[in-house]
Structures are given as C-alpha cells and as structure tokens.
Design a protein around this nucleic acid. Structure first.
Length: 460
DNA sequence: GCATGATCATGC
DNA sequence: GCATGATCATGC
C-alpha cells in the first residue's frame, strides 16, 4: 500500500503502539531469536506490507521517510535510555566523497525518520517486546547544523586518506560506527592503501537517549548555543570562546564576574563553575542539550606548578568477572572510550602546597578530547588482554606490614605498564571489597588514566 | 618526588 | 549503601 501523505502514514504507524511483535508478525519471523534486523523486517512486511529492500532511497520514497524500529530500555533509576545507537546506511568511501551534505547518502536516505520505539526487556522473548511509540522525527535546525559539521568531519577524514582512523567519539551527534560481522569486515578507501573498517552513519546512543526522553518524557534540556552562533563556529570553538575571557584568572576573580560561589571543595564545584561561565547558572551539566546529545563528560584537572596533575584520573570501578568474560569488541573499556568525549576543565596552581597551603586555583582553559583510535586499538587493547590473562591466572595478593597499617600488594598493571592507564584501588576503605572470579576478595579497583598521559593531552 | 595502595566526602 | 570525584600515606 502506498501512503499518499505523511498524516496517513503516521496514523497507521501509531496503530502499532501497544502491540507486540508477536501480534504483528504474520510470517513467523519472530521465532528467530538471532537474526538482528528481523524486528524491523517484521514491521515492514507484516505491518506496512512492503517488501524488504536495501535501496538507496528512503523506505517510503514518495514521502522521503525512512522507517527505523529501535529499542529503548528502562534504567534502574526509572529513566529511559536508547538501548543502542541508531544505525543508518553504510558509508561507501568511494562515493560519499563526491557529495555535498545535501546530496550525501546520509541526507538522501535519512532526512525524515519514522521512529518506532519498542521497549527492550532483558531475557524477554522478542515476540513479547512491545512497540510503545511511533514518532516522525525531523531534525531540528540546531541539531542539523552540528550534524552537518559531523558529516563534513567524517568525509574530510576519508578525503585525507584516514578512513581507517575514523572513530565514533570524533563527532558530536552523527557518527561513523563500525558495521560488519567483525573487525575483519575491511574495505578499501580511495586515498590510502590501508584498509578501513566498514562503517555506517549512525546517530549516537546519547543523541537517541536525549530524543527518547524528549518525546516520551517531554524532557526539555537547556541549549547553550543558538542557530546563529552554531552556523558561525563549531561546538568546540564556541566552547573555547565562552571560556577564554577567564583564562589565567584566579577563581576569586572569576567569582566576582559571575554568580559563582567559590567553594572549590564542594562536589558541585565543577558544575557551578561551568554553568556560570556558560551563562546558564543553576543548570546541571546533564541538563544541557548539546552535551547530553554528544555524550560529553566533564572532568576537572588541577595542575601543579610543574604542569602535571598531582593525581591520576579515575574512572569506573572494575568488574573483574565481566572483564574476564567479555571479548574486546564488546568490552566496557573499548566502548566507553570509543563513544565518550571529555571536556577537561583545566586549572593550575602557581605555588606548591608546601609553599602555600592556602594557594588558589587559576583557570587555564578547556580541552575537548576523546581517546584517539590508535591508542584504543593498540595500547588499550593490549592492556585489556593483559588484564584478562591476569584475572584468568588469578591475581596475586600479598599482605605487607607498614608503619601504621597493613597493605595488600597486587600484580595488577601499574602506571608504567603502558604509560597510559592502570588499575588502582578506589574504595571506601580496605574492607570495601569485591569478589574475583576465583573467589578471592580484593579491595575495589578502578580504571585510571595516568597523570603523565593527561599532562600530554592538555599540553598546548 | 614518585609509585602505589588506602581512604575521605558528598550526593543520591 | 553505593558510586564517584578527590585526596592522603607510606616507602623507596
């Protein structure tokens, strides 16, 4: 059946709300628990009644609307998230470089998306997943400006012969995500002999999560930039410009010019500082639209007079059982650094603590950073495998008596293992332990980036 | 002064 | 009670 108008199509799509895939499926496809694309195909065939295709134009080509069936999940705290990124069309490295954004394969196929969200529930059968919302998505103009910048970045890399260095966290909303059975799905690229992973355009999981929450929960986030500003400069440049007037000023000075409450000890300090400087005092950082969609995480860095942070930078605690079981491609550490961008907010001290215990922080600047693909593929990968072997062999624990305490030494990778990252404790106290796969207990450990690596990242 | 292990403080 | 960001303590 051909839908003549958008209204007709949307009206039909909304009739699927509340239905399960088992109810929709007419050809017994739903019994196949393995084939990944099948839920979309069931909707295409059994609900809309058209033949599954992989054409360049959108599914409902007369209306230029592309159909996407995509999962959402409920978090422990009750909020909703997109379960995955939304994978769009595969990038043809030889063709995409000949287009402009408006003639690109991305835009041709995906300018209007009919999104059908279903609720994914762990261990539930696919037949029982329920469609909860059908929604026609048109990219808001502010989003589209950033997406266009993202597309230019991706195509720019291909044109520079760097398709093999494409990485998801390079861009903000639109990404080039890996697509293929495994990492051996390699393709040729036009300006370099090196083979590149097959990739597809995708909307980041963070972008989709923000979308889900605005559609279903009617969440409204705060924008830090308007269309006019974004048209003139990238998000990165815009951030630089917002922060640059305060560079080299002490926090006391900055406080006088903003509504900032200076309490550097406060846990909300970074939050208050950044929102004051962005001109949106009182807004929490996770309520900022651009950062939520691009999955930008904030980290504070405090430099000593020698230009190096005194402390390493900590991340999530390690789940050793999970680390042992997962393979590299599905591992937390790979996915986290591939998909997360960081906004480092950098401060420095003029004097050492010894010299002046009441020394004051000064603002040095910001750095928008994501881990480069080469580091992820080499150092981080090796680190992952090494730790896996250690866990497999059983981590060695040895009690050592010190002056006033007893410590437990271990053979986990230290800061000198690869000069990038290491494992160190992060716990309440020495009784705050987790079980290792072999049954031993170890003080909770976290993943850390070395302070020397951080120092290099933020070096001008 | 660095490397490594331990712990504090706060918010939810 | 726990996760997270931040910082301390000891030995070399």
């Amino acid at each position: 059946m051909i839908y003549q108008t958008e209204e007709q199509l949307l009206h039909k799509a909304q009739q699927a709300e509340g239905k399960t895939f088992g109810e929709i499926d007419q050809y017994d496809r739903v019994k196949n628990e393995r084939a990944k694309g099948h839920l979309g195909q069931i909707v295409e065939e059994s609900f809309f009644g058209y033949v599954v295709n992989s054409k360049k134009e959108a599914d409902f080509s007369n209306l230029e609307i592309e159909l996407k069936v995509t999962p959402i999940k409920k978090n422990k705290n009750g909020t909703l998230s997109a379960k995955e990124r939304l994978v769009l069309n595969i990038i043809n490295y030889y063709e995409e470089i000949n287009y402009t954004f408006h003639t690109s394969s991305f835009w041709t196929k995906n300018k209007n998306l009919l999104l059908m969200f279903y609720l994914w529930i762990p261990k539930q059968k696919r037949a029982d997943y329920k469609i909860i919302k059908s929604y026609l998505h048109r990219f808001p103009e502010e989003d589209l400006i950033i997406i266009k910048q993202d597309w230019e970045h991706i195509v720019g890399k291909i044109r520079d012969g760097k398709a093999h260095e494409l990485s998801e966290a390079d861009t903000n909303y639109l990404a080039a995500c890996p697509k293929g059975a495994n990492k051996s799905s390699l393709r040729k690229q036009p300006f370099n002999d090196e083979l590149a992973m097959q990739r597809a355009f995708s909307l980041k999981q963070s972008y989709m999560t923000t979308l889900v929450r605005s559609i279903i929960n009617k969440d409204n986030l705060v924008h830090i930039a308007n269309k006019e500003e974004l048209q003139k400069k990238s998000l990165a440049k815009l951030l630089q410009d917002r922060f640059s007037p305060f560079i080299h000023q002490s926090l006391t000075n900055i406080a006088q010019q903003t509504e900032l409450q200076v309490n550097t000890k406060s846990k909300a300090f970074l939050q208050e500082f950044v929102s004051a400087l962005l001109g949106i005092s009182g807004t929490k950082l996770n309520e900022i639209d651009e950062f939520a969609k691009a999955n930008i995480q904030f980290k504070t860095i405090r430099l000593e007079p020698n230009g190096r942070p005194r402390e390493h930078m900590s991340f999530k605690n390690i789940n050793f059982t999970q680390w042992l079981q997962e393979d590299w491609n599905s591992s937390w550490v790979k996915n986290y650094f591939e998909e997360t961008k960081f906004l480092f907010v950098v401060f420095y001290y003029n004097e050492t603590k010894k010299c002046n215990p009441n020394r004051e922080l000064h603002f040095q600047g910001i750095k928008l950073w994501n881990m480069p693909k080469t580091i992820i593929d080499n150092e981080l990968h090796t680190f992952f495998l090494h730790l896996q072997e250690l866990i497999h062999a059983g981590i060695e624990l040895k009690e050592v008596r010190q002056k006033n305490r007893t410590i437990v030494q271990n053979n986990l990778p230290k800061a000198d293992f690869n000069n990038i990252c290491h494992i160190r404790p992060k716990a309440r106290n020495s009784k705050d332990k987790v079980a290792l796969p072999n049954g031993d207990k170890i003080i909770k450990q976290a993943f850390w980036l070395n302070n020397t690596y951080i120092e290099n990242i933020i070096k001008p």
